[in-house]
Amino acid sequence: MRLFDTHSHLNDEAFSGDLAEIVERAEQAGVEAVVVPGYDLPSSERALELAHRFDILYAAVGIHPHDASSADEAAMEKLRLLAKEDRVVAIGEIGLDYHYDHSPRDVQREVFERHIALARELNLPVIVHDREAHADTLEILKQAGASEVGGVMHCFSGSLDMAQECLHLGFYLSFGGPVTFKNARRPKEVAAQVPEDRLLIETDAPYLTPEPYRGKRNEPAYVALVAETLAKIRETEPEQLALATRENARRLFRVQG
């Protein structure tokens, strides 16, 4: 299979000791491209650095809702400059997280809106993190005009109704390791219903490792396990699933084949 991992934090400290080996294993597993999203300024800069170092890596830049309180004027201007660099393909990882509330919710919402405005200014898609904030996430996506640039709902965890709303906005839905978990009923149900031309796959490495490696460090090579599981759920061939998701990712992020 030829694969595209649309979300992998290879800029995380978890990979500081063996990154070259991780990238080599990904290539051996058939991974042709990986998007490395930032989650604050240093990690966004690191993502861009890695994208220039490894041919299969592409960068996204953004400030995660956990760190929304750090997104002052200077930080947003720095992001704006980073986002104009070659090999930056998206604004992200951005959004809302009401599970941990590491930043106040009103600040999260404001910073989310500002990221979408930046994406519209630069005509880049967005990579959206949504945890226990489905209603507010949808409202902001609609009101801030995110449909103008589109994007992906990273590691989608919402209902089928929410999936339909996101699809109506022109967004893609991405699924990762959780669809391989035995008790992941809702992600499997939603993944079975997503139109083939709106489906993406990811690892979210080093997190959310798929079975049978759950509990260990995740890495892009394991996106093949996600593809195989989704193919079973959708009653299609893994090669077809890999082809569709790869072409979808290339179209969204404007990455040439």
Rank of each mutant, 00 (worst) to 15 (best):
R2T: 11
L3H: 11
L3I: 14
F4M: 11
D5W: 08
T6E: 00
H9I: 05
L10Y: 08
N11I: 01
D12R: 05
A14H: 13
F15W: 06
G17A: 13
G17V: 00
E21S: 14
E21P: 01
E21V: 11
E21C: 06
E27C: 11
E27S: 15
E27P: 07
Q28V: 13
A29L: 06
A29I: 11
E32F: 01
V35H: 09
V35F: 03
G38L: 02
Y39V: 15
P42Q: 03
P42V: 00
S44Y: 09
A47R: 06
E49M: 04
L50E: 12
H52C: 01
H52K: 14
R53G: 00
F54T: 06
F54N: 10
D55W: 01
L57F: 03
A59L: 03
A60K: 10
V61K: 01
H64F: 02
P65S: 05
H66C: 01
S70K: 15
M76D: 06
E77W: 00
E77T: 13
R80H: 14
D86I: 03
R87T: 06
V89R: 14
A90Y: 08
A90M: 08
G92M: 10
L96A: 09
D101Y: 02
H102S: 00
P104T: 00
D106H: 14
D106S: 14
E110V: 00
V111H: 07
F112T: 08
R114C: 11
A117N: 08
A119Q: 10
D130E: 13
D130G: 04
E132H: 06
A135I: 09
I140Q: 07
L141P: 02
A144S: 15
G145E: 10
S147L: 00
V149K: 09
M153D: 04
F156S: 11
S157E: 12
L160Y: 10
D161Y: 01
A163F: 01
A163D: 02
L169D: 02
L169R: 05
Y172L: 04
F175Q: 12
G176R: 13
G177C: 13
K182D: 11
N183I: 00
N183A: 03
R185D: 00
R185K: 14
V190G: 10
V194W: 03
I201H: 11
E202C: 09
A205C: 14
P206I: 02
Y207M: 08
L208E: 04
E211V: 14
P212N: 03
Y213W: 13
E219W: 07
E219L: 00
P220M: 03
A227D: 09
A227H: 04
A231W: 05
I233D: 09
T236R: 12
E237C: 05
L241E: 13
L241D: 08
A242E: 04
A242R: 09
R246L: 15
E247V: 08
N248Y: 06
N248H: 12
A249G: 14
L252P: 12
L252N: 12
F253R: 14
R254L: 12
V255K: 05
G257L: 12
G257A: 15
